[in-house]
């Protein structure tokens, strides 16, 4: 039996090749870290499919092409379907030894692209779907998505006298995807890059559909300092507001189980989108977190 640690990759083992270079993403963009590292692990024989989102908007601006490997922009709702099509077409042409990866944001995954993703998993296609989750529609100017956390101020979930910002919690994409009986699924954070590399390496070896959900900070949308992007994504995990886990063979596994969380305020108040939160809002967030961890610790360890 292979152990997860068998898939460890040290930074010095990564290829020196940069497959995602010269893009026009904002300084400190967390999503670009996810895309860059993913391609380094998956290699140059990779087809990338990106729906209309930040990552495609910053890297396909004719005549500046920031992917050095094969890449295509799909319609917003179509990442899963186009991924399947690319993989099927390449297979049919007899092309061997290739990877097909999708990079969709939180809205492109949990909202508009949800159905196509479900279809792709259901078909059992040999594809890798990566959701880079920056917790709102950032490309269009910070609107609430199905993965926007409770209490987030966005341009469509304003915080004021009557509302604390977003009033719903994040849609539970990881478990929804797992409920398909997917070959392999995992959560990750750009704050824990080594964990992400390991999961990518594992994904590469899996036959059948793979879903990786990586928390990726967005200084522009989060109202945070650009240098804190990796720190914040780590703080999210350390405060228990995000988690690192895997699903395979009908089993969940929690990869990181902190004895003690850092205070959520330490994570939240470094970001403009949470600056307005009152004590009672923080309580709602903590209560939701604790419920989730109680369940995970009971069954995922």
């Amino acid at each position: 039996m292979t152990r997860m640690s068998d898939f460890n990759i040290r930074p010095k083992d990564l290829t020196d090749q940069e497959y995602f270079y010269g893009h026009k993403a904002c300084a400190g963009c967390g999503a670009t870290i996810a895309v860059r590292l993913a391609l380094k692990v998956l290699g140059e024989r990779t087809y990338s499919v990106l729906p209309a989102n930040c990552m495609s908007a910053v890297s396909f601006i004719y005549p500046q092409m920031a992917f050095t490997t094969n890449a295509i922009i799909s319609p917003f709702a179509s990442t899963g379907a186009m991924l399947s099509g690319v993989a099927a077409g390449a297979r049919a042409l007899g092309i061997k030894d290739f990877q097909t990866v999708g990079f969709a944001g939180d809205g492109g995954t949990a909202d508009i692209g949800f159905q196509a993703l479900s279809g792709a998993i259901d078909r059992g296609d040999d594809i890798i779907y990566i959701c880079y989750d920056n917790e709102a529609y950032m490309n269009t100017g910070i609107q609430k998505s199905g993965l926007t956390p409770y209490g987030t101020k966005t341009t469509t979930s304003p915080a004021g006298e009557n509302l604390p910002g977003a009033v719903t919690h994040k849609k539970n994409m990881f478990e929804i995807v797992a409920a398909h009986g997917i070959a392999y699924a995992a959560t990750a954070s750009i704050g824990y890059p080594n964990d992400f590399l390991r999961k990518l390496n594992k994904a590469k070896s899996v036959r059948g559909p793979v879903y990786l959900h990586i928390l990726a900070s967005c200084p522009t949308g989060w109202g945070s300092k650009t240098e804190l992007s990796v720190q914040l994504a780590k703080d999210a995990v350390d405060s228990g507001l995000w988690y690192l886990a895997e699903y395979e063979n009908d089993e969940f596994k929690l990869n990181r189980n902190p004895k003690e969380f850092i205070p959520v305020e330490e994570y939240l108040y470094k970001q403009g989108r949470f600056k307005h939160l009152k004590e009672e809002d923080i309580s709602v967030i903590i209560e939701h977190r604790d419920k989730k961890w109680e369940k995970m610790r009971k069954t995922w360890l």
Binding site: Y21, G22, K24, A27, P63, Q64, A66, T68, T69
Partner: peptide, 14 residues
């Protein structure tokens, strides 16, 4: 278009 085709730098952003 050819992948990895770069025509502008990003240094000016800094």
């Amino acid at each position: 278009f050819e992948s990895g085709h770069l025509v502008t730098k990003n240094a000016g952003w800094r």
